Amino acid sequence: MKPDLLLLGDSHTIALEEGARSLGLDAAALRYGGNVWHEGKFGWNDNGFFPKGSNLGRRVLGQMQERLGVKNVFSVGAPVLTTVGFHLGRLTRPFNWFDHAVMGPGDPAPTSGLLASDALAEAYVAHFRGAHIRVLKRLSREAKLIVVPPPAISEEPNFRQLRAIVIRLMQRAGLEVFDAAEALHGAGPVPAHLIEADGQHMTAEYGAMVIERLRDEKRI
């Protein structure tokens, strides 16, 4: 039976999956660790999306293919929510090794560290996220696809700036991006009770809020 919702991404999809189920929706998730995504171990072929060089990844995909009875799991007509591209720790940590500080449009000049222009940071992000954007563009031809960036709850240097650049590049490529944190909370912080104890992931309650907003806006 076709699920109500498909999810593609990393551990940030857990909140969306649990939130969907709390609303009575059948959500099916294709989830891989951040290293698989950052190292580009994925692609697209005649059977749709596929993981590269990962026996576990192939098993996860095979289980969903068996459940849905199709090779291309994104061809069943269910909307897709994805967090692909937002395993941001793999971007920020190397960028921060030499104490660079991104100065985006309208930002004040940093008071410490090595100044990194917005253009330099964008080129850096494009290098590491170009393949992700290309695969998502291809996927968007198969299904209704919405990118749902996890909120910027990390205080790691340059996290918010690099997240904003990923969003910008995706929108420039024509992908639909729903920045749930901005939609739900504006410029204010995400309430603490919606953040898991690990300080990195969101709760099922937050996932349900995201999906309810998307349904209210008739995006899914």
Rank of each mutant, 00 (worst) to 15 (best):
G207L: 00
L114A: 05
V76Q: 12
L6W: 15
E155Q: 14
I133T: 06
G62Y: 15
A181P: 00
A204Y: 01
I165K: 07
P79Y: 15
S140V: 07
R59W: 10
A183S: 11
A15S: 14
K52G: 04
D4S: 15
L7Q: 11
L25V: 09
F95Q: 01
H201C: 00
P157I: 12
L7K: 10
I153A: 09
A180D: 04
P151T: 08
K144L: 14
H87P: 09
A27E: 03
L88N: 14
E176S: 07
P110C: 08
G69V: 10
K218T: 02
Q171S: 11
G106S: 10
R138N: 08
G77A: 13
I211Y: 00
P191L: 01
L6Q: 14
M202D: 01
R160M: 00
E39N: 06
R168E: 13
S11A: 15
L114W: 11
G53D: 10
G85D: 08
R90P: 00
V177R: 02
G89T: 11
L25P: 05
R67W: 02
A20P: 04
H193M: 03
L91T: 01
I133K: 01
T92S: 15
R168Y: 12
I146M: 06
V177E: 09
L16D: 11
Q200W: 03
P151A: 11
Q171D: 08
A27V: 06
L175I: 12
A28E: 11
T203N: 04
Q65A: 12
G174C: 05
F49D: 00
V76C: 13
W37R: 04
R93H: 15
R59C: 05
Y206F: 05
V125I: 09
D26W: 06
L88E: 14
A126H: 08
K218S: 03
M209D: 01
V76A: 14
V148T: 08
G104W: 09
Y124G: 02
L162W: 11
T13L: 11
F159K: 00
L175D: 09
D216V: 00
F178W: 10
G43N: 04
M1P: 09
R59P: 00
M103W: 11
G34V: 01
R213L: 04
L6K: 09
S54A: 12
L56D: 11
L162P: 05
F49Q: 01
V177Y: 10
R129D: 00
M64T: 07
I133H: 03
T83E: 14
R141Y: 15
D198E: 03
R219C: 01
N47R: 12
M170P: 07
A181S: 14
V60H: 13
W97H: 14
G106R: 05
H132A: 06
T82M: 15
D10H: 15
K2Y: 05
E182M: 13
V147Y: 01
E155A: 15
Q200N: 01
G48C: 08
P108R: 07
S75F: 15
F42W: 07
F98H: 09
R138K: 10
H127R: 04
G89Q: 10
E155V: 09
F98N: 10
H132M: 03
M103C: 14
A109C: 07
W97M: 10
D198N: 03
D10S: 15
I153Y: 11
E18G: 06
I195N: 04
L81V: 15
A152V: 07
V190H: 05
Y32V: 00
Q200R: 05
D198M: 01
H87L: 14
G62S: 13
